[in-house]
Measured scan of single mutants.
Amino acid sequence: VPQRAWTVEQLRSEQLPKKDIIKFLQEHGSDSFLAEHKLLGNIKNVAKTANKDHLVTAYNHLFETKRFK
C-alpha cells in the first residue's frame, strides 16, 4: 500500500504541479478508480481537463477507499 506523498497543504499549493498528482494517481489507483474520476489517459490531457480541487478530492478518495492497483 502506498503512503501519502503530500500533506493537504502541499496538495493545495501552487508549488505542486497537477501532473505530479495525476502521475501518482495513475501509478497507484485501480483502473476502475481512475475511470470513475476521469483520470485515465495521457497525463497532459488529463491535466488540461482536471482542476486541482478534483485531483485533491481523488487523491484523498484513493486513500479512503484503498482502491489501489
Rank of each mutant, 00 (worst) to 15 (best):
V46N: 04
A58I: 13
K52H: 04
H28R: 05
S30R: 06
N45Q: 14
K23G: 10
E14H: 12
T7A: 04
L34Q: 04
S32E: 15
N45T: 14
S13R: 03
D31P: 12
K52A: 05
N51K: 09
K18F: 05
H54T: 11
N45E: 13
K52T: 05
A35V: 09
N42S: 12
N45M: 13
V46M: 07
L34S: 01
E27A: 10
Q10F: 07
E27K: 09
D31F: 13
L16A: 06
Y59H: 01
V46L: 13
H28E: 05
T57H: 14
L16Y: 05
V46G: 03
K66W: 06
K19F: 10
F68L: 02
S13D: 13
L40V: 12
P17M: 09
F63W: 07
H54I: 09
H54F: 09
K38A: 13
K19S: 14
Q3A: 10
T65M: 13
E64V: 09
S30T: 11
Q10V: 06
L39I: 07
E36A: 07
H37R: 09
V56P: 00
E14K: 13
L11Q: 02
K48T: 13
K19Q: 15
V56M: 05
R12S: 08
K38Q: 14
S32Q: 10
L40E: 09
E36M: 10
T49F: 14
N60I: 14
Q15W: 11
N45R: 14
Q3M: 11
N51Y: 08
L55E: 00
E36C: 08
L16W: 04
E14S: 13
V46Y: 04
F63S: 01
D20Q: 08
Q10I: 04
V46A: 05
Y59D: 00
N51V: 10
I22A: 03
E64Q: 08
E14Y: 09
F68G: 02
W6I: 03
Q10K: 04
Q10E: 12
D53R: 06
K69S: 08
H28D: 01
Q26K: 07
K66D: 06
N42M: 11
T7W: 04
P2G: 03
D53T: 08
T7Y: 03
I21D: 00
T65V: 05
G41W: 03
Q3W: 04
L11P: 02
Q3V: 10
A50E: 06
A5M: 14
T57I: 14
